[in-house]
Design a protein around this nucleic acid. Sequence first.
DNA 1: CATTTGTCAATACAATTGTATATACACCCG
DNA 2: CGGGTGTATATACAATTGTATTGACAAATG
Lengths: 224, 224
Amino acid sequence: MAIRSRKASNTNDHEKPGRKPPIGEHELMQAAVSLLDGNRSVSSLSLREIARAANIAPNSFYRHFRDVDELAVALIDQAGRGLRGMIREARQRLEGKQGGVRTSVEVFMEALDDDSRYLQILSREMSLGSDAFREAVERELTYFEQELCDELMMRGERFGLPMHEPALVAKAITRLVFTMGASADKLSPDARKVLIDETAIMVRMIIRGSHAMAGEQKQKPKKK
Amino acid sequence: MAIRSRKASNTNDHEKPGRKPPIGEHELMQAAVSLLDGNRSVSSLSLREIARAANIAPNSFYRHFRDVDELAVALIDQAGRGLRGMIREARQRLEGKQGGVRTSVEVFMEALDDDSRYLQILSREMSLGSDAFREAVERELTYFEQELCDELMMRGERFGLPMHEPALVAKAITRLVFTMGASADKLSPDARKVLIDETAIMVRMIIRGSHAMAGEQKQKPKKK
DNA sequence: CATTTGTCAATACAATTGTATATACACCCG
DNA sequence: CGGGTGTATATACAATTGTATTGACAAATG
């Protein structure tokens, strides 16, 4: 939790040597995001570096976050929220279309293609940083799995295609898409396209497999 | 000063301010590995830190590697080789057993369970560090995919079960297993077991899906 | 008005970083 | 023996780090 700022509106823009208008946590987070272009991870950013990018004194950082880690967690939350929002939106837009399993894939892929920065942040810090850090990522991933699982079950029910362990299907798809997507942003646009197609095929394989296993399980209940 | 044989003088343990026996790159890499317990990534290690862990002077580091990044690449290569070796060994041991798709899963999982440190290194640096860095990881992952693809095709041929896009199947399985395995080492042993079972189911889904899609494709060639 | 409070900057400090330079051995070759 | 060559160390230095202290200024509050 950050210390609340954002008080009155300060229209004074004069760049006098003295004061600067207050800065919110949002600007700080944006500054941090602007830093992690390319290869860097959020936890590799230094407090002074972020402060520099945000044009504030190093110590002013503490007015908003206690740590860089705290900022990172906030950033992860924001990335997760943003990504989920984009996916929901894409899903609504594609709702009219039919296409069975294909829709889910396209939804994911479109969000992936749209703003890979969010996805990058999440997937980069999956296995990195402090504990609170990875817990935040895990939390966001779980949200994704939840929503995806709901949709998968809904579709399965509607089309009469039962799934084997839909929760696992959602988990597998989520992890796979995140992993694939993480390696997408430094690719050329056409290579990206290829990777997206590949990922779509993979996702379809998983879904087809779960259907097949569900059918088989119904025919002959496993010996254990 | 009397001339002393280097072998004979090697047992001199006196902590005189003088000399220390030479150190190989292997020891340095081991020291680096010992540092990245828990959350740290290889690229977050400092040269001095590694030197400290290896009991050498900071500058001696340069005798063996030009960078920390260079050490990291060497470490990635070693991890990949070690992991592939373990998998080959496990595969040989399981060759007699039958079990269709299950064998591949078990082989992967056994190697995962055996020494997750290697896997940790590889999966942690997938989307991190310098370019040469990630290229090294990518290279090792490709090796895995290659071997897995070969085995998958062999099995498919032997059992008369054709696969849809075996290369993609191998890629999906590899990425998925690495991702899942990366989040396994900080779990309790029983939670680990659960995760391994889950991963096995996921892998089976992929394989079943690829079989299903191959069969479907044969029946009715896609409309596009 | 005076006072408090919240947000910033400036300075400073100890720690740690990567690396440059110089030096002390141990060895190999002549 | 004497002189490279290679590997280690010690010292040093400039940069950069996180943070403590202090104070300036604006807005809110009395």
